[in-house]
Design a protein around this nucleic acid. Structure first.
Length: 418
DNA sequence: TGACGTCAAGATCCG
DNA sequence: CGGATCTTGACGTCA
């Protein structure tokens, strides 16, 4: 079983994709962006490997305007070496990747222009995965589309257009239930017609269930039957509702208790879980560490080293509590550890605690910083104390210093990400 | 016609 | 002038 995250990382250095707007999409600019984004993808794959993350969704923005006529670059040829290198890493590490065109790729539209662009978009996604030289277990996830007041006709139109797709796209395409139109029963029916595997999305299902009787796990088992050997392991999407936001909003982080209950209910079912959550890789690490078959306290210590100033900033009491928790080197209190973190992260900002943490961080520079920098730091502390600047501003200053003096320990921590 | 969702680019503001 | 913050863009459907 692999657990992974979508598209981008939180708290990882030099791992940001770039994009541009249509009017700036010249061949020169596109060339630069693609080159940059491939370097970033390479770095994220390295990060995933180093952190034991074996499931990842590649952003559709990897190639800006990848399926638009404004991008005519033969990028898959011009960058074939980079693609090959990245693809080799993915394969040799046993990582599984996917792509997911957004809500605007609509294969069942009554507008044939929309359908044509949807097909082009699917071909674009396919070309990325093929450029990486990945087999058909690396999937492209698609929703069914609109209803147009007639779900039967619209499903039929999806099926009709699906059948026209190229074989190379079909072998990668998987379909997913959504939160307003097509529920999991609709998906299974369409799957029977087109023979495409079905992704079960738990949050979409919660908002848009097919009925009120069938247990969730029964649907997951139904979906399992749609996955053939050449499709690889069954894959599902897992997310949690953000409290007090509108239905369907992904949570800030995966609440680990809830996830562990779900994981328990899975009862050994062998499937891959793609998390859809704001804190991305951080939740992936959390869930991976809490379901690990080879628990090692070292992994939690590594996590603690990244979270420690985030915790200190909010609660010195909990900072001590977590230190105590991790003292027993024969234990593995992963769930307790992450639950405490979740609790602490909900605390409101307290100036005294934030200043205390900032001073701990300052200690990394105090011997090397110039007088000007010292004055800059303490001046900002004073201004923050007086509510003249935000905590963010104070921390940005420390971040600058961390970059200048190459304090990798700080730069690799999550202190600047929260 | 605007909300929806998502992210970063682009524009504007501020000291 | 540089950096922080606000606004726009890109997509298609539906109310």
């Amino acid at each position: 079983m692999s657990i992974g995250y979508a598209c981008l990382t939180v708290g990882v250095r030099n791992a940001e994709f770039k994009n541009c707007i249509l009017k700036n999409a010249t061949p020169k600019r596109l060339y630069e962006l693609i080159g940059h984004n491939l370097i970033i993808l390479d770095r994220i794959i390295d990060y995933n490997i180093a952190n034991n993350i074996r499931l990842f969704r590649i952003s559709s923005d990897l190639i800006p305007f990848g399926s638009s006529p404004v991008n005519q670059l033969p990028w898959h040829k011009d960058f074939s070496e980079q693609f090959h290198r990245i693809g080799t890493k993915i394969k040799s590490s046993g990582m599984r990747v996917s792509m997911h065109p957004g809500q605007y790729t609509v294969l069942n539209s009554p507008d044939e222009g929309v359908v044509r662009r949807a097909v082009e978009d699917l071909e674009y996604h396919e070309r990325v995965l093929s450029s990486l030289d990945l087999d058909g277990t690396h999937k492209i996830v698609l929703h069914i589309g609109g209803v147009y007041n007639d779900k039967k006709a619209s499903s039929a139109r999806f099926i009709f257009h699906y059948e026209q797709l190229s074989e190379r796209v079909k072998k990668r395409l998987v379909i997913e239930n959504d939160d307003r139109s097509y529920n999991i029963a609709d998906l299974l029916a369409i799957s029977r017609a087109v023979n495409a595997p079905v992704i079960f999305d738990n949050l979409h299902h919660w908002i848009n269930p097919a009925d009120h009787e069938t247990p969730e796990m029964d649907w997951i088992d139904e979906c399992a039957l749609t996955w053939k050997p050449e499709d690889g392991r069954q894959k599902i999407h897992y997310s949690q509702q953000e409290p007090s936001k509108k239905p369907g909003s992904h949570s800030e982080t995966v609440r680990i208790r809830e996830f562990m209950e779900f994981s328990h209910d899975l009862n050994g079912r062998c499937l891959d879980i793609m998390l859809e959550v704001k804190d991305k890789n951080l939740s992936a690490l959390k869930c991976i560490n809490c379901t690990s078959r080879e628990p090692s306290i070292r992994v939690l210590e590594a996590e603690w080293s990244k979270y420690k100033y985030v915790v200190l900033e909010r609660s010195p009491q909990d900072y001590q509590t977590i230190r105590e928790l991790l003292k027993d080197k024969s234990g593995y209190p992963a769930v307790q550890f992450y639950e405490l973190l979740e609790e602490v992260l909900l605390y409101p900002e307290m100036k005294g605690n934030a200043i205390n943490a900032a001073q701990h961080v300052w200690a990394y520079f105090k011997d090397v910083a110039s007088d000007k920098e010292r004055a800059g730091f303490f001046g900002r502390i004073e201004k923050y104390q007086q509510s003249e600047i935000s905590l963010k501003l104070l921390k940005n200053y420390l971040h600058q210093l961390a970059v200048k003096y190459q304090r990798d320990y700080l730069l690799d921590s999550y202190y600047f990400a929260f």
